[in-house]
């Protein structure tokens, strides 16, 4: 009986404020879509980081006759120096940090180079010009600094380079994009919250006679409040469902259908991630709507 009564009050409120309800739906839809986009971007960044950082190695370049670094003295690293570097990598201080390392001689470096580069330039490059290299896989890629500090300046070592630093600009750009999305989402959410509050006040104002009589005859606050809170929540849920649909559609059609085919070597977020985002959007929408409607209606409950 009471449930039916509350629902009929909710239906009445939604009908009476139809245009406001539509605007609440649209604003929550757009703001939550931005929230979803920001979450997905972060997931994408994490996924790419995981993928690339696992593959990123630390390169210990050894001196060659043509190396420019002062401490190389334009002389090739000697066999003792190479053995010394290997010994340092095997030392008890560094060994626990290192997953595996391998040595790459001039010939192997040249083959790799020829594979990768334009062959016309390859004519000028001789295998001796390319440094011999220890490729090191770290257990934890973020600890590469230890390796760099230990080995830099060791006789026969030209340079120690962490490949991760080449990836950082890409991640910086992606991070900036996701922070922008979060910023826009936050602003839109503020707008959504205020709009919900205004809508609920309007709804309460148009029903102030009923509210006055309800308070007079002793309807409990919860009973008076519930239809309004539900009104806000229903509008927000519709917006959140639309936002969830938009997020899933973007992932399905744009990311998987277009980007993934364009850049087949990169792994992208898929529907699994998108489906994790949907309940988050619903929860955010419901929570914000319930809170702002509650605050908005509390003024009418003062006894």
């Amino acid at each position: 009986m009471r449930f039916g009564l509350i629902m009929s009050e909710v239906g009445q409120g939604l009908r009476r404020n139809f245009s406001m309800v539509v605007s609440v739906v649209l604003v929550t839809f757009i703001s939550l879509t931005f929230v979803g986009a920001a979450i997905l971007l972060q997931m994408q960044i994490n996924e790419m980081k995981g993928y690339w950082y696992d593959r990123a190695q630390v390169a210990v370049y050894l001196c060659t006759d043509t190396a420019l670094a002062a401490h190389c003295n334009m002389t090739e690293a000697t066999e003792e120096q190479k053995a010394n570097v290997a010994a340092i990598l095997d030392s008890p201080e560094l060994a626990p940090l290192i997953n595996a390392y391998e040595f790459e001689n001039h010939e192997e470096a040249y083959e790799k180079y020829v594979d990768f580069a334009d062959t016309s330039e390859g004519d000028y490059i001789t295998p001796e010009m390319l440094p011999e290299t220890y490729w090191v896989n770290m257990v934890d890629p973020s600890q590469s600094d230890v390796l760099i500090e230990t080995l830099s300046g060791t006789p026969g070592v030209d340079e120690v380079a962490d490949q991760r630093k080449y990836l950082d600009p890409i991640f910086d750009a992606l991070n900036a994009a996701s922070y922008t999305a979060i910023g826009i989402a936050a602003l839109m959410l503020v707008a959504a919250v205020l709009l919900i509050a205004t809508t609920i006040r309007l709804s309460a104002f148009s029903r102030r006679r009923e509210l006055g009589i309800m308070r007079l005859v002793g309807a409990s606050n919860r009973f008076i409040q519930t239809p309004f809170v539900l009104e806000g929540v229903i509008a927000a849920v519709i917006g959140a469902v639309l936002a969830g649909g938009a997020t899933v559609a973007v992932v399905h059609f744009f990311v998987q259908g277009y980007l993934a085919e364009l850049m087949a070597s990169t792994s992208f977020v898929g529907l699994t991630e998108a489906l994790i985002v949907v309940p988050v959007l619903l929860a955010v929408g419901i929570l914000l709507a319930a809170l702002s409607a509650n605050v908005a209606i509390s003024r009418y409950l003062k006894v």
Partner: peptide
């Protein structure tokens, strides 16, 4: 307490000059 006011009012009836019907 304001939470109990509604239940208190259920024991009271009120009539106004302007009727206040819906």
């Amino acid at each position: 307490s304001s939470r109990k006011v509604p239940y208190f009012r259920r024991n009271l009836g009120v009539v106004f000059q302007d009727f206040r019907l819906l």
